[in-house]
């Protein structure tokens, strides 16, 4: 009797171990960062390079911003609590918070740097979305399905760059000239830059890249070593926003 109970317990233990063994790797093998996308060079890896040196020459230029707003029916709301931003400018010291270099030129501290969604390789917004309304595409674009968004704003809390905006009020009355081949959003939905996925599908460059008169925005494929972005990154010193967070942004700034 005793020996059979002992045998039974042993067997049960072994069985439990066998069943859970498959999950072991999933639980303990979490690195938080997947490298698989880089090794598969079949897929593109979309990225943008912003040449701040050129961008700062034309102070007050908003060609890229207005082009984006026009293309995507981004409303112009004056109340900062309700405003919607896809691509905009912010003071240097607010954009690059991990500044280790003191005694910067005062002018530079307050120079306006262009920012937009970083399309992180490890996007925290995607992890927290409860409805899979936001996800990372194979080509690295952090996409949004506005049909699916329930407006919980977890993604806004998770994004360390403030790249997402919430429609507290209906945006339609605040769009001066509606572009008819692109939808507007509705009250209760989060929105952000999607790297112009609709234009990329038609083999066009993103609207901001196309609009820049100084050509300081470059867009391309990081997986292609001959691409313009890779060439520029290889030949210039570049920085990214909050690299220590491990989100691995795909917007590079040449300083």
């Amino acid at each position: 009797m005793n020996s059979s109970r002992r045998k039974f317990l042993k067997l049960a233990g072994m069985a439990a171990l066998g069943i859970t063994a498959g999950k072991y790797e999933k639980i303990f093998g979490l690195t938080g960062y997947s490298n698989t996308q880089h090794s598969q060079s079949v897929s593109k890896l979309r990225a943008m390079v912003i040449d701040i040196r050129k961008c700062l020459v034309e102070k007050g230029c908003t060609a890229c911003i207005s082009s984006c707003n026009k293309t995507h029916n981004v409303p112009n709301i004056d109340n900062t609590k309700h405003e919607i931003k896809w691509i905009w400018k912010e003071d240097y010291e607010n954009v690059f918070l991990e500044k280790e270099n003191h005694f910067l030129n005062e002018d530079f501290k307050h120079s306006e740097i262009l920012i937009l969604c970083n399309h992180c390789d490890n996007p925290p917004c995607v992890k927290v979305c409860p409805t899979k309304a936001t996800w990372k595409r194979e080509d690295g674009i952090v996409m949004m399905d506005w049909h699916r968004c329930i407006g919980c704003r977890y993604c806004m809390a998770a994004c360390p760059y403030g790249s997402r905006s919430f429609n507290w009020i209906s945006p339609r009355p605040f769009i001066e000239n509606i572009t008819k081949n692109f939808p507007t959003r509705t009250k209760g939905v989060v929105e952000k830059c999607t790297f112009c996925d609709e234009r990329l599908a038609r083999n066009q460059l993103p609207a901001c890249v196309e609009a820049c008169p100084q050509k300081c925005l470059l867009f391309g494929d990081l997986n292609d070593s001959k691409s313009e972005v890779r060439q520029v990154l290889a030949n210039n010193f570049s920085i990214r926003r909050k690299p220590s967070l491990g989100t691995n942004p795909k917007i590079y700034y040449i300083v």
Partner: peptide
């Protein structure tokens, strides 16, 4: 249906 909360009615425009 709430299609036209976001999608734009061409003719109206």
């Amino acid at each position: 249906p709430y299609c036209w909360d976001c999608h734009i009615e061409q003719k109206k425009l």
